Simulated scan of single mutants.
Amino acid sequence: MLGGSARSLKLAFVIDPVDGLKAWKDSTIAMMRAAENHGHDVFAIEARTLGWRTTETGHPGGAFAEAVHLHLRPDDHDWYRETGREWTPLKAFDAVIMRKDPPFDFEFLTATWLLERAEADGVRVFNRPRALREHSEKIAITEFARFAPSTVISRDLQQIHHFIDETRDVILKPLDGMGGSQIFRVHRNDPNRNVIVETLTHEGQRTIMAQRYLPEISQGDKRILLIGGKVVPFCLARIPKAGETRGNLSAGGTGVAQELSPRDREIAEAIGPVLFKRGLMLVGLDVIGSHLTEINVTSPTCMVEIRQQSGFDAAGAFITAIEHACGLS
């Protein structure tokens, strides 16, 4: 054993298809590597295999999934070996880590219901399924409105256009997007504003978010990680490429690790303990300038870039928090 606890844990990661993960940047793979480095057994569960059953004899069944036992390798192009595959009750694991990416669609919702049944059987699940359901990554900022920029959440076209007229320069985005998908910057006099609003809202049938455009985006959309309610001391500022208003790495942004500013820390220290008490072990805050714009709870990323540039091992800190939750420290 190279680090971590004196007892090996069986840790299952609920993920999207394994072959679609990119080891050179994926925080989930960083967590898996950290877990194995701490001496734990690592399993991957594709979310589509989650299920529940009982028996005709009345014996308890419970939540189950197809679990793939992995051995992690340092080669980012050939990063794992499959050493076993079996349909397994989730009760067999010491902890289950939910890392499936959005969209938060009906299948994601179903996964949280099934994982909640596993919780009822005593399985430790991180982040907690109920907390995932109750914290929309966009709407969650309403609880901490004192940190947020001017914002409106609505599907009413008149309300959205009034906000654009009043605010003059805004960002429009759907509530279920990720990675910068379908994000628009709209000026009050933009000739395309009507069609953009109509398209995003599906002619008033879908609720969206509008926020005041923050010019500080040029210095980066900062991803601040919270682990076990505590603030990671480095964030990743995702700086838009030329001609872009989105800092998302998937939209071509450049990630620059940097220490937290006093305002960053103020926001994170106010939010971290609140969300941790609700079962959110890992949270990613998005901060532009001095304003909180999103609270990411499904599958927060940027661990790899932060470690490469700052040396801080957020993935290892997360596994240590899991160990503590499992009673190993």
Rank of each mutant, 00 (worst) to 15 (best):
S5D: 07
L11W: 08
A12P: 01
F13T: 00
F13E: 00
I15M: 14
D19E: 13
D19L: 03
L21E: 02
K25L: 08
K25F: 09
I29D: 06
M31N: 09
M32H: 04
E36G: 06
R48Q: 14
G58V: 01
F64K: 06
H71F: 08
L72C: 15
P74N: 11
D75M: 10
H77D: 15
H77K: 14
D78I: 02
D78A: 11
G84V: 03
E86H: 13
T88P: 06
K91V: 09
A92N: 05
I97P: 01
M98F: 15
D101Y: 10
P102Y: 05
P103T: 01
L109G: 09
A118Y: 05
A118R: 01
D121Y: 01
P129K: 01
L132I: 12
T142L: 15
R146L: 07
A148Q: 01
P149M: 10
T151S: 15
T151C: 10
V152K: 06
V152S: 00
S154W: 06
R155D: 13
L157G: 11
Q159R: 12
Q159M: 09
H162D: 15
F163H: 05
R168Q: 14
K173G: 01
G179Q: 06
I183L: 12
R185Y: 12
R185G: 15
R188Y: 09
D190G: 11
R193K: 15
R193L: 09
V195F: 08
V195C: 08
V197P: 00
E198T: 01
L200C: 09
E203N: 13
M209A: 13
A210H: 07
L214C: 06
L214N: 03
P215G: 09
P233Y: 08
P233W: 12
P240Y: 07
A242K: 11
G247F: 09
S250E: 06
A251I: 03
G253A: 11
T254Q: 12
T254H: 12
V256T: 12
V256F: 10
D264Y: 08
R265M: 13
A268M: 08
G272H: 01
L282W: 02
D286P: 06
G289W: 04
V304Q: 14
V304E: 13
E305H: 03
I306Q: 02
Q308W: 04
Q309P: 10
D313K: 10
A314T: 05
F318Q: 01
A325W: 05
